[in-house]
Amino acid sequence: MGEKSIQNVSDEMIMAFVDGELDAGQTKIVEHALETDPALQEKAAMFAETTSMLAGVYDGPLQEEVPGRLLKTVQSYPAGGWWQRTAKKIRRAFRVPVMRPAPAFALMAVLIIGGWLLYSGNFFNPSTGGNYPAFAEGDAFSQGLERTPGGRIFPVAGFSARVSPVVTYTDLKNRYCRRFDVLDQADNNRIIGRGIACRDQTKHWRTIVYQQVSEKGSAPSARSSFELAGSNNLVDSVMNKEARNLLSDQQIQALIKNGWIDSP
């Protein structure tokens, strides 16, 4: 044990030695240093004295009776509620660690906003509603919307359905979009579905929302006698939310004639 070891003994090591916090090797180093260095001995005595001067000074609460109000609080204050127990069960089931409020809130916000974006189609354009028709992404369907004026009907080859563009508009993403009805092959008055398709940069009309229509009553004859399955007017609500400008028949005719080349 040389001079180097003695020089390496810091105040923290002396203190840890006094408090019994050193391992055997470190204890030997400090013991050796203390034997030969009076200054270190003084430091050790100083640390020991700080402990002894505090000993007992604040021990009053250990000797006296605990006040009744504290006992009453501990014995009767309501413990964590059912929501905490439920949250703990969920955490255990999915092995999710306990989160601090701020990250938990941030995660919840991300999930809510992400869910809303997915629903509104800002990230993807999923069809919404039941039984998305196979033709709604086909070339015949796309060409039909490209060439058919509003209110007219065009057939979709290979499918027992016809399509009628109802409303044409430009949306918030600066696209041409058409709200269309899908009509029964045998009865043009019978709407079997409604949807919205928007024209993308490849000049293809892609369906962004579609919903089946269920029949209301036994034998309706008018289109207004039918209603959307599930939540009412989902297609219309999407259109109302996304539409920027509704286009007139003349504007639609011009676009069809010019091949929808004008940027909305």
Binding site: P67, R69, L70, T73, V74, Y77, P78, A79, G80, Q84, R85, A87, K88
Partner: peptide, 16 residues
């Protein structure tokens, strides 16, 4: 004692 009481209430409400 006030501090201990508040701490006990907080501990019980967040026992889990």
């Amino acid at each position: 004692d006030d501090l201990v009481q508040s701490a006990c209430e907080r501990a019980l409400s967040r026992r889990l």
